[in-house]
């Protein structure tokens, strides 16, 4: 039964990965990566119960922290870049 939930999560991660590859803008990719991060945290929590090792929960929390900071850092980077160089904007083909 945990396997079913884990499977749903993995499929969703796959869909998010497709969205990250398709783009089209850099923000779509960041959105997809953020989604994948949340799903990873949930997947780690479910795996904790599926294989009965509570130490995986610590990994889940660490991943949640890293994901949040990572997304903010990437966004800040693109904001700075589009400010410095308005011609070559991060906006790609629609």
């Amino acid at each position: 039964m945990y396997i079913a939930v884990a499977l749903a999560l993995v499929v969703t991660m796959g869909l998010a990965l497709i969205r990250a590859l398709l783009g089209p803008t850099v923000y779509d990719r960041v959105l997809a990566v953020n989604m994948m991060g949340t799903k990873t945290v949930l997947l780690l929590s479910v795996i904790t119960f599926a294989i009965g090792r509570p130490d995986f929960l610590d990994l889940a929390l660490a991943y949640a922290l890293i994901n949040f900071i990572g997304v903010l850092a990437v966004l800040e980077f693109f904001r700075k870049r589009s400010e410095l160089d308005p011609e070559n904007n991060t906006k790609e083909a629609e």
């Binding site: 939930v5 749903a8 499929v11 969703t12 796959g14 998010a16």
Partner: peptide, 19 residues
């Protein structure tokens, strides 16, 4: 189990929606 499966369902819907 009800919560877990409905959670899995909503997660899947979100993934489909993002595509």
């Amino acid at each position: 189990w009800l919560l877990l499966t409905s959670g899995g369902f909503f997660v899947l819907v979100g993934g489909v929606g993002a595509l």
